[in-house]
């Protein structure tokens, strides 16, 4: 009796570890993404081209970088999941996003902020996060792809294996791009890794290097 039972357990083990496919809990790490448009259908509008040409990299290194650049960063992120909320803790800039998944909509009059207003919902095993109310003080990536305050982002997070999560972001900004476009990448689960403290303003040495490229 014992042997067949353990055989069954062994056979199920890889699936058991992945049984809760809608559980995103854990410390994850994605590839550093310096150019969010690479391999996508992104096409800048004339206004967008003008902004892109003007980008000189002279940004305050310790102000928030906005949603897409935060996700582009190579440092680990931790997802904390409860039935009514997803919290994403970022090591870089040591900042957080708190996303209700309780069915609420965006508020009617959103103040524009660096991280905007996020609402999440589950579509099957996929967490869909809708972000509106973003200010225009950031760029989408470190090479300077622009966006306006009309930016609307949709992120889709789906656990695809015991150690992997697919991430897709839809960039919808009619002022900067001719049509909405999508970028995808894969995040890896990092068992045993913990986020470290990160204090941008403490002994910050980057500012002196940010002299502009133009």
């Amino acid at each position: 009796m014992f042997k067949p039972a353990s055989l069954v357990l062994l056979a199920l083990a890889p699936m058991a570890a992945f049984a809760q496919s809608n559980d995103l809990t854990g410390v994850w790490q994605g590839p550093y993404t310096s150019d969010l448009t690479r391999g996508t259908s992104a096409k800048l509008t004339p206004w967008g081209q003008e902004q892109f040409a003007k980008f000189d990299g002279k940004q305050d290194p310790c102000l928030p970088v906005g949603v897409t650049r935060q996700v582009n960063a190579p440092d680990p992120v931790e997802i904390v999941q409860t039935p009514s909320r997803i919290v994403i803790l970022y090591e870089s800039w040591h900042i957080f996003r708190s996303i209700p998944t309780d069915g609420r909509e965006h508020p009617k009059n959103i103040d524009l902020t660096w991280f905007g207003n996020s609402v999440g919902k589950w579509e099957g095993d996929t967490l869909v996060i809708d972000i509106a109310g973003l200010n225009d003080k950031t760029s989408l990536d470190t090479v300077g792809h622009p966006h306006s305050d009309q930016l609307h982002l949709i992120e889709r997070l789906k656990r695809t294996g015991p150690k992997t999560m697919a991430y897709e972001v839809t960039v919808d900004d009619p002022k900067a791009y001719t049509a909405p476009w999508k970028q995808s990448r894969v995040f890896q689960l990092k068992d045993g890794l913990e986020l470290m403290e990160y204090v941008c303003l403490e002994n910050e040495k980057d500012r002196g290097h940010l002299v502009g490229t133009k």
Partner: peptide, 23 residues
């Protein structure tokens, strides 16, 4: 300030100061 609690983790999110968190 906000607390988000799971069976294995207690997270404090601070609105003020540096808008950061404790784990």
């Amino acid at each position: 300030w906000k607390i988000v609690q799971t069976p294995t983790l207690f997270v404090i999110l601070f609105e003020g100061n540096v808008h950061s968190y404790r784990q």
